[in-house]
């Protein structure tokens, strides 16, 4: 594998290899090794056409901890705002000798285009494209679940994962369903009918419109952000109604199993899809997800760039 474009590209063995590698890298960080040498002399470009703080910072931290050189590019204040095309931007990166390009783009499929158009020779990592996919988020979520619920090794066989909220616009949900299926978990999507994508019945997971019905039996519950910037149609009557029917509050959280964890990919709308007391509760692993994100992205970069060719 040269690129990481979709969670669907990963076989079970590859996914587990990434999680295992992330575990060793996290252990190195815990033991106080701040910098590891394997990507010395390699250049990683963070190509961000869309706003992002945690993903960009996470990739930057990951690349730097592996001793890669990092070039950050954000569309704002760049030649893109002067009308440069993706192709010309890519050719510029190629001329600068990028060994890997981490791309976040508001158009679904942009990473695929970048990887397959022959513009660049380096690897491409999808850091979120439109409403399509966000594979490294799915990997860090799987890593977090594995640490808490599966003894930190192997796959996620028979874990019950409930994903709640705006599935329609969520690249996180899509990548998670694909990866969790690969790893053997059972996924249930919960959303109002208007926020479920067309064809969701073919995703190979349960679908429900009722959150209260989906709490018991969940080992992990993942709340998706209500993406206000994409809400240009009336998907639900009011924010208050959404929150009361699909928000995770304390009384709903208390109905979860003792061991169940609460996840959120961030950034959160406190009071909307998740209440503040739930977000700050002991069951919430949201901050841990961010830390795990760095380890998982280190693993992906190491496996893509660490050898002659990749996994």
């Amino acid at each position: 594998m040269k690129h990481l474009l979709s969670a669907a590209d990963l076989t079970k063995d590859q996914a587990i290899q990434i999680l295992d590698t992330a575990k060793e890298l996290a252990a190195a960080t815990e033991q106080g090794v701040g910098k590891l040498p394997p990507l010395r002399g390699r250049t990683v470009v963070n190509l961000f056409f869309e706003d992002s703080t945690r993903t960009r910072m996470s990739f930057e931290a990951a690349a730097k901890r592996l001793s890669a050189d990092v070039i950050n590019f954000s569309a704002k204040g760049s030649s893109v705002s002067k009308g440069e095309s993706l192709k010309d931007t890519a050719l510029t990166l190629e001329a600068m000798g990028a060994d890997a390009v981490v791309i976040r783009h508001n158009s679904s499929g942009a990473p695929h285009r970048l990887a397959n158009a022959g513009w660049i020779s380096g690897g491409v990592v999808n850091a979120g494209d439109g409403t399509h996919e966000h594979p490294t988020q799915a990997l860090l979520d799987a890593y977090t679940m594995r640490q808490h619920l599966a003894g930190g090794e192997g796959d996620l066989k028979d874990l019950n994962v409930t994903i709640v909220g705006d599935v329609l616009h969520s690249r996180v949900a899509r990548s998670n369903v694909l990866l969790l299926n690969t790893l053997g978990a059972k996924v249930r999507l919960v959303a109002p009918p208007t926020l479920l994508p067309y064809g969701v019945e073919s995703w190979g997971c349960d679908v429900s419109y009722d959150l209260d019905d989906s709490l018991e039996g969940a080992d992990a519950i993942m709340m998706l952000r209500v993406q206000r910037e994409r809400m240009n149609a009336a998907y639900f009557p009011t924010a208050h109604e959404y929150s009361s029917r699909y928000g995770l509050n304390l009384s709903r959280m208390n109905r979860l199993a003792e061991h169940a964890i609460v996840m959120h990919p961030g950034p959160m709308n406190r009071g909307m899809e998740i209440s503040a007391d739930v977000a700050d509760s002991k069951r919430s692993v949201i901050v841990e997800q961010v830390a795990n994100g760095v380890s998982v992205r280190m693993a992906v970069l190491y496996l893509l760039l660490g050898g002659t060719e990749s996994i």
């Binding site: 295992d20 060793e24 890298l25 190195a28 190491y302 660490g306 050898g307 002659t308």
Partner: peptide, 10 residues
């Protein structure tokens, strides 16, 4: 000189 290798525990 070889494909990326799996890491072992330290």
């Amino acid at each position: 000189m070889r494909p990326a290798r799996a890491l072992q525990p330290t």
